[in-house]
Amino acid sequence: MANTEQSKKRARQSEARYAVNKARRSRIRTFVRKVEEAIASGNVEAAAAALKAAQPELARGVTKGVLHKNTASRKVSRLASRVKAMSAPVAAE
């Protein structure tokens, strides 16, 4: 348990940051899930639009310290390659 004023304040700040970061992480996961669902549905336009919306959210997570830069980059890359793979067979026809 926090005893000093400073440690009590740090505990309060930590709780507040935890809540903000939790909300940010949840928001990012929601955007990523929307891309996953669009890919699963097979709708190329919806998947591309969802990916375009998710990319800035992932980048914002990096700047806010919720995600590591390489983690966000990896997620975007993997989602983009999956979206691209969806449209490749259609373009070949």
Rank of each mutant, 00 (worst) to 15 (best):
A88F: 10
V83T: 08
S73A: 15
V90F: 10
V90L: 15
A38F: 04
M86N: 09
L51W: 05
R33F: 01
A2F: 09
A16I: 10
T71E: 15
A23P: 00
A19I: 13
I39D: 08
E37M: 13
V44N: 08
A91S: 03
A85P: 10
A85T: 04
V83E: 08
V83C: 05
G65E: 11
K9Y: 10
R17P: 03
A11P: 00
E15W: 02
A72H: 07
T30P: 00
L79H: 12
S41A: 15
A85S: 14
R25K: 14
S81A: 13
K22G: 01
V20D: 11
L51E: 02
N3R: 15
A46W: 01
S81Y: 11
K52N: 08
A47S: 09
A50P: 02
S7T: 12
R10Q: 15
R12Q: 09
K64Q: 07
A92Y: 09
K52S: 13
R60N: 15
S77C: 01
G42Y: 04
T71A: 10
R60K: 15
V83K: 11
V44P: 04
N21P: 03
M86F: 01
A92T: 14
A23C: 04
H68Q: 12
L67M: 10
A38C: 05
K75W: 06
Q55G: 00
M1K: 08
M86P: 05
R17N: 14
R82I: 04
N3S: 06
V62W: 03
S7F: 05
R24F: 01
A38D: 06
K64F: 01
V66S: 01
R74K: 11
R25Q: 07
S7M: 08
M86G: 07
S14K: 05
S41V: 03
R82E: 11
K84I: 03
I28L: 01
A50Q: 06
A19L: 14
R78G: 11
K52A: 14
E36D: 15
I39T: 12
A47R: 04
E15C: 02
A16H: 06
A23V: 00
S77N: 11
A40M: 06
A40G: 08
E57K: 07
T4I: 10
A23Q: 14
E93M: 13
I39Y: 04
G61N: 06
A80R: 10
A2W: 05
M1W: 05
R82H: 07
K69N: 07
A23K: 14
V83W: 06
A53G: 01
S41C: 07
A72M: 09
K9S: 07
A50S: 13
T71L: 02
R25A: 12
Q6C: 03
N43V: 04
R33H: 12
S77L: 02
K64C: 00
A46D: 15
R33C: 01
E45D: 15
S87P: 03
N70S: 13
A53F: 04
E93A: 13
A2D: 12
R10L: 12
E93N: 11
V32D: 07
A40Y: 06
V83P: 07
R12T: 05
K34M: 02
K8P: 04
P89G: 10
S87A: 14
A72N: 03
R17V: 14
V66N: 01
L51G: 06
V35Y: 02
A85Y: 05
R24N: 13
A46M: 03
N43Y: 02
E45Y: 01
L79Q: 13
G42I: 11
A48L: 07
A53T: 11
R24W: 09
V62F: 05
A2E: 13
E5C: 02
S41W: 00
